[in-house]
């Protein structure tokens, strides 16, 4: 894995907040008109640079918590602050999603008609006007995640591990301080999973990115410095240095 040769877009500001990267206070989220309580008064603080795994049985609220942190959804009650932003009173949620948080999904969620490098360019449309600089940074990011030679391949032509690496490169495009990953190894074989985890871990360690990973995979939980065990919409146990 090489270092990024090109700086992030100039419009991306450096984190200028103090305090925790994530702070949840009494976060509640229900679905089906209140009949299904996905999160039930979650309190949580994640400091900058932490590697946190969120584990628990299906339906315990892990992904819902992650989606709220990414400002993809809004809580019914409680407050969430991420990278200094109160997500309940957003000045600009689109900008927040573009530069403050990077998302990696279980399904890689790449745009199938675009090549790998074009997929990585997509978030840069919001921050970098120069087409050449967008392309240059996207290529560097692909090099960074180790698949520069697959830049012109479309998602159907890539293996599962390669697609997930493209997704990670895309999540890093605007150099966000927080990376949120929802089952990033969920559909990968063990060897590929290990390589993707190596990449995420090195990102957290070397680039001081805060990493929150929702997972069923015990290997992921083993590597994390902190593991949150969730059950029925609550954090049942918060284990540091497991």
């Amino acid at each position: 894995m090489s270092e990024l040769a090109i700086a992030p877009p100039r419009s991306v500001r450096a984190p200028d907040f103090e305090g925790p990267m994530i702070r949840c206070d009494g976060v509640t989220k229900t679905f089906e008109e209140g009949r299904l309580r996905a999160l039930d008064g979650v309190d949580l603080i994640v400091e900058p640079g932490e590697f946190v795994a969120v584990v628990g049985p299906s339906g315990c609220g892990k992904s819902t918590l992650l989606n709220l942190m990414a400002a993809l959804d809004q809580p019914d009650d409680g407050t969430i602050r991420v990278a200094g932003h109160d997500l309940g009173h957003p000045p600009d949620l689109d900008h927040f999603r573009a530069v403050d948080v990077g998302l990696v999904f279980q399904l890689d969620n790449l745009l199938p008609s675009l090549t790998a490098v074009e997929n990585v360019e997509v978030p840069l449309f919001t921050t970098e006007r120069s087409r050449r600089r967008r392309r240059r940074r996207a290529l560097d990011l692909l090099d960074f995640v180790g698949i520069a030679d697959r830049a012109d391949a479309r998602p159907p032509q890539l293996s599962g591990g390669e697609r997930q690496r493209v997704a990670i490169a895309r999540a890093l495009a605007n150099e966000p301080p927080l990376l949120l990953a929802d089952e990033p190894t969920g559909r990968l074989d063990s060897a590929t999973s290990a390589r993707v985890l190596d990449l995420l871990e090195s990102l957290q360690r070397e680039r001081d990115v805060t990493l929150v990973v929702v997972t069923h995979d015990p290997d992921v939980a083993e590597r994390a410095r902190r593991v949150l065990h969730m059950l029925d919409g609550r954090i049942e146990r918060d284990v540091r240095d497991p």
Partner: peptide, 10 residues
Amino acid sequence: GILRAVGWTG
């Protein structure tokens, strides 16, 4: 949804 998730505005 993906475009919105990576920061594209409406």
